[in-house]
Design a protein around this nucleic acid. Structure first.
Lengths: 307, 307
DNA sequence: GGATTGGATAAGTAAATATTATAGTACCGG
DNA sequence: CCGGTACTATAATATTTACTTATCCAATCC
C-alpha cells in the first residue's frame, strides 16, 4: 500500500471511473487498472464493483478511501512542516554560553527574536572550557566563547571585541585621578577571577614588565561577586567591559583607564565546521553578521582559521 | 515521499546509522543511502548530519520522523480495518424487504446477529415491486421477495416455502367446522389485499373452477389491517401463513384448512449476479443456507434460474 | 599513523510501473 | 434485438525506479 495507490483509489472513487481517474492523474487507463488491481491483490480484497457502467466502491473500498484521505492529508502536513522549518516558522536553537559571553548574547538575542519570532532558543549555561566539547558532541549547535578553541572541526567567528576595564569603587582615590599608570597600581589589592585563563597570564606579564608588584589578595568564583567586592571598596579588578557597562553607567563602579593594561578580549561563536547548519542557526549567524554591519565596532564578523 | 522512504528514515534514525539500518531492512547500505538522499532531494532539506560516526537527525529529520511514525501507524490501521471487514468484525448489510418478507427476515436476522454481532444491518422497507430495481441500482445488496423477479442480472434463491392460510375470527362459525370445502366459502365476505399479485389471480381461478362465488367486499392496503378486520369478525381472508402465526398461536385468529385453497408462496433472496458479494452479504447467505440445513422445511436454499 | 568503521558514488541489474494495442462487457437508442 | 458507445481488462513492450556489487573517501580508534 503506497501513496500512489491511495491517490489512484481516491481518483477512481471520486471520478466513479477508471478512465476518468486516469485522465485526472495524467496517466493511461490501463495504468490505473493495474494500480488498483495490484492494491486489491495486496489487500486480498476487491475495492470496486466494476459490474456496472460506473465503478462503485465496495465496503472495503469505502473504508480504505477514508484512510487514504487521512494518510494523504497527513503526508501533506508533513511536507508543510518541513517547509516551515525552512521558512523559520518552526525550530529551536541550542546555544551554549558562560556567565560572561551571555552578556554578548543578550544583545543579539533581542534582534534575533524580532526577525525569527517562531524560533525557540535554549541557552545552556556552561563553563567556558566545556563549551567546545558541547559543540562537538552536538549538545548545542553554537557556542559562545571568549577564547579561540582548538580543533580542526570547529569554525570560529570573532563577533565582538571587548576591552578589559579596571574598575574601582566611586569612593576609591583612583576614581578621581587624572591619569593612572600601571605603577600606580602596585599598592592596590587586586580581586581576581579564580579560573586560569590566557588573560590572567597576560596581566601578570604586564605587571612584571613594568616591575610593579601585583597583589591578588582575593580570588572569587564569579564576576558578580568580584563586582560587588570592588563596589564595596575592597580593592580593584580588571574585568571585561561588557560585564560592568551597567554599573559604570549607574555610577556604582568607576572605570580607570590605564595605558599599559589595555587588553582586548574577543567574543567568538563556534560551531561544527562540517555539520549542516540548521536554518535557525544560519539565521542566527546572519543576525550576528548584520549586527556587525549595522552597529559597527565593537561588533564584527570575522571567521578565524582553525588551529 | 513514500512509505519506503519513511520506513528507511525511521530505521536510520533509530539505528543511528545507515549500515545498521540497511541490515535491519534487509537491504544494502547503498540502497539506504540512495533512498535517504532521494528523500532529502525531494524535500529540499537534509535529514541527517553524517559528519560524525553516527548519523544524527537534523531538525527537519526529527520533525519528519514524527510524521513518519504517525503515517506508518495509520497505514497499519488501514490494513487492519480491511482485515476486520474480511473477518466480519466490521461492515453493514443493506437489505430490502416488504411488509410480508420482513417476517421471514426476522427469523434469519436473529441467527445472523449471533454469528456476526459486529455487522450492522439496515432493512429498507420497500414495495415488493420496487425491490428488484433497488438491488440492481445497488441501493441494497440483497432483496427479499415473494415472487421470482425477471432480469438476467439477478440471482434468485428460494429460501422459504410459505402456505396461504384461510383465517377467521374464533367466534366465526367456520372456526369450529370439522371439514371445510371451497364451496362452503361462497357465502363468506373475503377481505383482500388491494395489490395485484399472481396469487390473487390464482385464488380467483380456484373459485371459478369450483363454480363458487367469491365476494371480495373489502380491500385493504396492509396485512395488519386485514388481520384486524378478520379478527373483529368482519369476514375471512387468505393470507400468507407467516403473517398470522402469532395470531393463530395466541388464539386471536383461527386457521381453517381448505383443500382446494392450498397455495404455496416462495420467499426468495435476490442479489446482483455479477457484483462481488460483500463479506457481510456472503455471511448472510451462509446463515440462510445453514438454516435450511439445520431447520429443514419450510426453509430451503434453492438457486433458481434467471428468466 | 595505520586499521577500522561508516557513508557516498558509479555502474550494472532486477523490479516495478508505465505505455500502446487489443479484446471483452455493460448500456443506450433505433 | 442489435449495433454503437463507453468503459475496463489483458497482453506485450518500453521506461523508469530501485536495488546490488564494487570501490572510494572521511572520521574515529588504538
Amino acid at each position: 500500500m503506497d501513496f500512489t495507490q491511495l491517490e489512484t483509489l481516491l481518483a477512481v472513487a471520486e471520478e466513479k471511473g477508471f478512465s476518468r481517474a486516469a485522465a485526472r492523474l495524467h496517466r493511461t487507463q490501463p495504468a490505473v487498472s493495474q494500480t488498483i488491481h495490484k492494491l486489491e491483490g495486496d489487500l486480498g480484497e476487491l475495492l470496486f464493483d466494476r459490474s456496472s457502467r460506473e465503478a462503485n466502491l465496495t465496503t472495503a473500498g469505502e473504508v480504505l478511501c477514508d484512510y487514504a484521505r487521512r494518510l494523504l492529508k497527513l503526508r501533506s502536513e508533513a511536507g508543510s512542516a518541513i517547509q516551515e522549518i525552512r521558512n523559520l516558522e518552526r525550530g529551536r536553537l541550542q546555544l551554549a554560553a558562560n556567565e560572561y559571553t551571555c552578556l554578548y548574547l543578550l544583545r543579539v538575542l533581542d534582534r534575533f527574536q524580532r526577525i525569527c519570532p517562531q524560533i525557540g532558543i535554549t541557552v545552556h549555561r556552561s563553563l567556558a572550557s566545556k563549551i567546545p566539547e558541547e559543540v562537538l558532541e552536538r549538545t548545542v549547535e553554537i557556542g559562545i566563547l571568549s577564547f579561540h578553541p582548538e580543533g580542526e572541526h570547529l569554525r570560529t567567528i570573532a563577533v565582538y571585541t571587548d576591552e578589559l576595564a579596571l574598575v574601582v569603587s566611586p569612593r576609591h582615590p583612583l576614581a578621581r585621578a587624572r591619569r593612572v599608570t600601571i605603577e600606580d597600581l602596585g599598592a592596590e589589592n587586586f580581586i581576581a577571577h579564580n579560573v586560569p585563563s590566557p588573560l590572567r597570564r597576560q596581566v601578570i606579564a604586564a605587571f612584571a614588565k613594568h616591575k610593579t608588584p601585583l597583589n591578588m589578595g582575593v580570588e572569587l568564583p564569579s564576576l558578580e561577586a568580584i563586582k560587588r567586592c570592588v563596589s564595596l571598596g575592597n580593592g580593584v579588578a580588571l574585568v571585561p567591559g561588557l560585564t560592568v557597562e551597567q554599573e559604570i553607567a549607574s555610577g556604582e563602579l568607576v572605570r580607570v583607564p590605564v595605558e599599559a593594561l589595555r587588553f582586548e578580549r574577543h567574543i567568538r561563536l563556534v560551531h561544527r565546521k562540517r555539520a549542516p547548519l540548521s536554518h535557525a542557526a544560519a539565521a542566527f549567524l546572519q543576525v550576528v553578521r548584520d549586527l556587525a554591519g549595522d552597529a559597527g565596532e565593537p561588533y564584527e564578523f570575522r571567521v578565524e582559521r582553525s588551529v
